[in-house]
Nucleic acid binder design. Structure first.
Length: 891
RNA sequence: GCCGGGAUGGCGGAACUGGUAGACGCGCCUGACUCAAAAUCAGGUUCUGGAAACGGAGUGUGGGUUCGAUUCCCUCUCUCGGCACCA
C-alpha cells in the first residue's frame, strides 16, 4: 500500500477491474415465463434509474448529484444481494441543438453526437456502476421508430387526434418560437412583437386517463407526498356543471341563428348571482362580434397578442369589453351582457365563464371596474358577512364571500346548502335541457406537434386525394435527415423536398410528408421501458420489460415533478392498454433531488443584453460596511458588478461549476463524497469550494489511518474479538463500529440521507484515531472498525474503497462483497445517561443502569445535586419520566 | 397570481416518532512541527454576563397547544421549484 493517496491511480485501477470483469452488465436470469433458479434464490431485481441527461455538451453539477445518488443506491442494493440494472441514455432531441446550429452553423446531429461522446467519457470517469451495453439515444432511428409506431397505434385507438392549437409566431423570421424564446412579448433574435397563430396540431388524449392518473397516485407509496399533491392539483379534477345560456332575441337576429352560450362552473349554486358572461378572445362568438365593432376587434387582437402562459395571464391586468351580444338567464330569463375578457382562456372548459361578482374574487374586481351589477345569493353558514353584503357599493372583497354557504335570493332554490343547491340546480337545468352535471379536468390534452427540425418526425402523409394517411409500418422509421442546419427561419424540413415529397401510400399519387416533429417529452415518456430491451430491433419492448419494471428507484430533479412524470405515467398506461407492458405505474419509488445552486453576478450594460459573470472570476471587497463585487475586464481592470443572489447553475446565468475540473484536481471519489455530504438529496445544494477540500481531506485521512494500521502488520478482525475478553475501551469502539453500521444501513437503505451516513463514518474514524490500541485485541477491534468503514463507504467512494479493501489484507474484490452484518452483542450497553429537566429547562444529567425501572430513575433524578437545588422536594407537582431519554420535574 | 417546497451559529447542515438544539464538515482562533510556507497534528469556536463555577437568551416573524416545540396548529415575511413549446 502506498503511503500517499493518489486519486488518479486509484480510480484507474478500480475502473479497470470493473471494466475487465464487466461488473455492471445486468443479466435478466430470464428464460421464457419463469425466472431461473439463480434469480429465485437472490433477493430479486432492482431497477435503479436516474433521469437521462440532455447532451448539452458538458456534464454539470446537477448531473453529478443525480447520478451519484443513483449509483450509491445501486451499489448498496447490489451489496444487499439484489440483481441490479442501472442503465444510461441520452435525451438527445431538442432545442439547444438547433440553437447551436444557428450560432455556429454545425448540424444538430453532429453537435449532439459529439456531445454524447464527450459526456459519456465524463460519466465513465465518475465510476458509475452503469450497464453501458444498454445505452440508448433518442435521436437514433432505432429508438424513435417506436415513438412513430406507438403514435400510429394511438391514432388507431383515437388517443392521438388532430385539432388546432395556438403557437408563438415570429413574423420576421417566419418561424414558430418556444415560450422561452419569447422575451417580453418579442422574438429573442428579431426583437419584433410576437403574434399568435392557430395551426393544426396533433394531441394525445391524456384527459381520458385523468381519473386513473389521479386515482393511482394513492398506490404510489414510494413517492414524496408533495409530488403527488402537485400532480393531483395539476390534474385538477373538479365536479361542476355545464350551463347553457340561451341567446337573447336581438343576438339571435344578429347571429342569424338560435343557440346557447355554454359555460362550465364549479359554483352553479351561485347561478342566480350571475350578472354577466365572459368569453375568451378566441371564442367563436367573440370573433363574430369583432366583425361588427372595430374597437372590439382591436381589443381582441390585443388579447391574442398577449401571452398564453398561465403565470402571465394570472398576473396581468384584467381587462374586458362588451361584445354587444346578450344571453338570457336560464331560470329568470333576465338579459345578461356577454363580455370578452383577457383572463378567460379558450383552452380550459368551454372558453367561457359566468360572472358572479358577489362570490368570485376575479369577477368581483371585473364587475367593480366595469360597473356591472353585483348580486349576493349565498350567505355564510353562520352569522352574516363581516363587512356587510358584497353587493354594497363600496364593499371590499373578503374571502368569506367566496365560501360555500346557504343560498338565498335564488327563487325556488333558496335556503339550500352548497351540495343540495348544486344538485337541485343541475337537475333543474338538465330537465330544461339547459345544462348537466359534469366532471372537468384542469389537465389539458397533450399537444405534441412541434414546428421544428431536431425531433422525431410524425409519421403521417398528407394526400390531396386520400387525406391524412399513416406511414405504413413497413416503411418505419421515417428517418430524419441528419445533414440539415437550421438557420432560425423556420423548420428546414419544409425546405427539403427530398424529405417531404413522397408518393401517397394509398393511391400512389404525389403527396406531402408531415414536417412537424414530436415534442421531446414523447421521447422521455418511455425510455425507461426501452432499457430492458434496448437491443431488440424488431419490437418496441419484449418480455424483459415485465421482469425489470416497475423501476424500483427513480431519481431526478424536482423540476420534473409534474410534466415528465405525468406524461411517463400516461404513456405507460397507454402501452398497458395496448398489451405491451403489464405494469400500471412505471416508478415505484421516486427521489426528487434538489437543484444545485450557485451565486449569480451580473451587469447591465448601457445597451444590449445583461452580462453574467462566473463566480470564479469575482472578487469581493468591503466598502463602507457593504460588500462590493468586482469582475475583471478584458484588459484585467476590475469593474463593479451586482450580486443577484443564488440560482440554479445554468449556462445563461454563467454560474456553473465544471465537474471536470473537480474530477481532475481531486478525483471522482472526492466529487462524489462532496455532493453526497453537503446536503440531503431532496434539498437544494449550495455550491462551496471549501467544502470540496474537506471531502478530499477526509479521504486522505481515511487512507492514512488504514496505512498506519496495516504498516503494523495485517491482523484479522475475527481474532481476539470476543466481547468478554475485551477492555472497556475496546468494547466501546466495537459498540461505536456497530452503531455506525446500524446508522449507515438505515440512512442509505431507508432514509436516503447520505450526508448523515457519511458523518456517522466520520465519527467512527475519529473514534479509531483516538483509540490507538496496539495490543492484539486492540488491533483486531481496529481492523473490524476499518473494514466496516470501508464497506459502508464503498457505495459512495467506490474507487478508494476498492484499494483499501485489498490493503486491509483481503484477496477478494470489494465489488463482490455483501453488506456487513450488525453484531447485536456489540451494541449492548450497561448504563445509559439521561437528561434531567426542571420545568422543561435542562439542569443536569444522571447515569443509570440501562434496565433501571422508572422508580429508580425518578429517585436518582430527584437526588441529583445539580437538579434539586432548583426546587424544594415538597413542591414537586409532577415528575415525567421518558424511558431511556429524560426526566422532567415540574414544580 | 396559483400550486408545491424551504428558512437552524460566520457557512453547509444534524436533531428520524414532541424529549440534551448546533452532530459531522467548512471557516476562523490558539498551539505544535518548520528557516519559512503549505500539508499535518492537538485544543477552542451559537450569542451574551462571568476569571471560573454557573446563569440568561436563542431554530425567519408574531401568536397558540403542551410538563416540554426546530418538530404540531394559525398569521405574516423572504426565498426556491412548477405553471403546459427549456429540458
Amino acid at each position: 500500500m502506498d503511503e500517499r493517496y493518489e486519486p488518479a491511480a486509484v480510480e484507474q485501477l478500480a475502473q479497470q477491474h470493473w471494466n475487465e470483469n464487466r461488473s455492471f452488465v445486468a443479466r435478466e436470469n430470464f428464460s421464457g415465463q419463469s425466472l431461473d433458479a439463480e434469480a429465485q434464490l437472490s433477493k430479486g431485481k432492482f431497477y435503479c434509474l436516474s433521469m437521462f441527461p440532455y447532451p448539452s455538451g458538458r456534464l454539470h453539477m446537477g448531473h453529478v448529484r443525480n447520478y451519484t445518488i443513483g449509483d450509491v443506491l445501486s451499489r448498496f442494493a447490489r451489496m444487499q444481494g439484489r440483481n441490479v440494472l442501472q442503465p444510461m441514455g441520452w435525451d438527445a432531441f431538442g432545442l439547444p441543438a438547433e440553437n447551436a446550429a444557428i450560432a455556429n452553423g454545425v448540424a444538430p446531429a453532429k453537435w449532439t453526437r459529439e456531445n454524447i461522446a464527450y459526456m459519456k467519457k465524463q460519466l465513465q470517469a465518475l465510476g458509475l456502476a452503469i450497464d453501458w451495453e444498454r445505452e440508448i439515444a433518442t435521436c437514433d432511428p432505432s429508438y424513435y421508430r417506436w415513438n412513430q409506431w406507438l403514435f400510429l397505434r394511438m391514432r388507431e385507438k383515437g388517443i392521438a387526434y388532430k385539432k388546432t392549437g395556438i403557437v408563438n409566431w415570429d413574423p420576421l423570421d417566419q418561424t414558430v418560437l418556444a415560450n422561452e424564446q419569447v422575451i417580453d412579448g418579442r422574438g429573442w433574435r428579431t426583437g419584433v412583437l410576437i403574434e399568435k397563430r392557430e395551426i393544426p396540431m396533433y394531441y394525445l388524449n391524456i384527459t381520458a386517463y385523468g381519473d386513473e392518473l389521479l386515482g393511482d397516485l394513492a398506490s404510489l407509496e414510494g413517492w414524496p407526498e408533495r409530488v403527488k399533491l402537485m400532480q393531483a392539483n395539476w390534474i385538477g379534477r373538479s365536479t361542476g356543471c355545464e350551463v347553457n345560456f340561451p341567446y337573447a332575441p336581438q343576438t339571435r337576429e344578429l347571429m342569424g341563428k338560435d343557440a346557447t352560450l355554454k359555460v362550465f362552473t364549479t359554483r352553479v349554486d351561485t347561478l342566480y348571482g350571475a350578472t354577466f358572461l365572459a368569453i375568451a378572445a378566441e371564442h367563436p362568438l367573440a370573433l363574430a362580434a369583432s366583425t361588427l365593432d372595430d374597437g372590439l376587434k382591436t381589443f381582441i387582437d390585443e388579447c391574442r397578442r398577449g401571452s398564453t402562459m398561465e403565470a402571465d395571464v394570472a398576473t396581468m391586468e384584467k381587462k374586458g369589453r362588451p361584445t354587444g351580444y346578450h344571453v338570457t338567464h336560464p331560470f329568470t330569463g333576465k338579459l345578461m351582457q356577454v363580455w370578452v375578457a383577457n383572463y378567460v382562456l379558450m383552452g380550459y372548459g368551454e372558453g367561457a365563464v359566468m360572472g358572479v361578482p358577489a362570490h368570485d374574487e376575479r369577477d368581483f374586481a371585473f364587475a367593480r371596474k366595469n360597473n356591472i351589477k353585483i348580486i349576493s345569493v349565498v350567505r355564510p353558514l353562520q352569522g352574516n358577512y363581516e363587512k356587510g353584503s358584497p353587493d354594497a357599493i363600496n364593499a371590499e372583497w373578503c374571502d368569506t364571500y367566496g365560501e360555500h354557504g346557504i343560498t338565498f335570493n335564488s327563487g325556488e332554490f333558496s335556503g339550500l346548502a352548497f351540495e343540495a343547491a348544486m344538485e337541485a340546480i343541475s337537475i333543474a337545468l338538465e330537465q330544461r335541457n339547459l345544462g348537466r352535471k359534469r366532471v372537468q379536468f384542469r389537465l389539458r390534452d397533450w399537444g405534441i406537434s412541434r414546428q421544428r427540425y431536431w425531433g422525431c418526425p410524425i409519421p403521417l402523409i398528407h394526400c390531396e386525394h386520400c387525406g391524412e394517411v399513416p406511414v405504413p409500418e413497413i416503411q418505419l422509421p421515417v428517418v430524419l435527415p441528419e445533414d440539415l442546419v437550421p438557420d432560425g427561419s423556420g423548420n428546414p424540413l419544409n425546405k427539403t423536398p427530398s424529405f417531404w415529397q413522397v408518393p401517397c401510400p394509398t393511391c400512389g399519387k404525389s403527396a406531402r410528408r408531415e414536417t412537424d416533429t414530436m415534442d421531446t417529452f414523447v421521447d422521455s415518456s418511455w425510455y425507461f421501458l426501452r432499457f430492458p430491451c434496448a437491443n431488440n430491433l424488431s419490437a418496441m419492448v419484449d418480455d424483459r420489460v415485465n421482469y425489470w419494471l416497475p423501476v424500483d428507484q427513480y431519481i431526478g430533479g424536482i423540476e420534473h415533478a409534474i410534466l415528465h412524470l405525468l406524461y411517463s405515467r400516461f404513456w405507460t398506461k397507454v402501452m398497458r392498454d395496448l398489451d405491451l407492458v403489464t405494469v400500471n405505474e412505471p416508478f415505484s419509488k421516486l427521489l426528487t433531488q434538489g437543484m444545485v445552486l450557485n451565486h449569480i453576478y451580473s451587469q447591465q450594460p448601457s445597451e444590449g443584453r445583461r452580462a453574467y459573470f462566473n463566480p470564479l472570476d469575482i472578487t469581493e471587497e468591503q466598502l463602507d460596511g457593504q460588500k462590493n463585487y468586482f469582475a475583471k475586464g478584458l484588459g484585467g481592470e476590475p469593474f463593479r458588478v451586482s450580486y443577484d443572489g443564488l440560482g440554479t447553475m445554468s449556462k445563461s446565468k454563467n454560474n456553473g461549476v465544471d465537474p471536470q475540473i473537480l474530477v481532475e484536481k481531486y478525483g471522482a471519489d472526492t466529487a462524489r463524497l462532496f455532493m453526497m455530504f453537503t446536503a440531503p438529496p431532496e434539498q437544494s445544494l449550495e455550491w462551496s469550494d471549501e467544502g470540496v477540500q474537506g471531502a478530499y481531506r477526509f479521504i486522505r485521512r481515511l487512507w492514512k489511518v488504514v496505512y498506519e494500521h496495516v504498516s503494523l502488520g495485517v491482523i484479522s478482525a475475527h481474532i481476539h474479538n470476543h466481547t468478554g475478553s475485551l477492555s472497556t475501551a475496546q468494547q466501546n469502539l466495537r459498540r461505536t463500529t456497530h452503531q455506525t453500521l446500524t446508522r449507515v444501513t438505515d440512512d442509505i437503505g431507508r432514509r436516503r440521507t447520505f450526508n448523515t451516513a457519511i458523518s456517522a463514518v466520520m465519527e467512527l474514524l475519529n473514534a479509531v484515531i483516538k483509540f490507538d490500541d496496539r495490543s492484539p485485541q486492540g488491533r483486531a477491534v481496529t481492523q473490524e472498525a476499518l473494514e466496516i468503514a470501508t464497506l459502508s463507504l464503498s457505495p459512495i467512494i467506490p474507487h478508494v474503497c476498492h484499494t483499501l479493501w485489498y490493503s486491509l489484507g483481503h484477496s477478494t474484490h470489494l465489488i463482490d462483497m455483501p453488506w456487513p452484518k450488525i453484531d447485536n452483542a456489540a451494541l449492548i450497553q450497561d448504563s445509559i445517561t439521561l437528561m434531567v429537566q426542571v420545568n422543561g429547562r435542562l439542569r443536569g444529567q444522571i447515569t443509570v443502569a440501562s434496565d433501571a425501572d422508572e422508580a429508580t430513575v425518578r429517585a436518582t433524578a430527584l437526588a441529583e445535586p445539580s437538579v434539586c437545588k432548583f426546587f424544594s422536594t415538597a413542591l414537586v407537582k409532577k415528575v415525567i419520566v421518558v424511558p431511556r431519554k429524560l426526566v422532567n420535574v415540574v414544580v
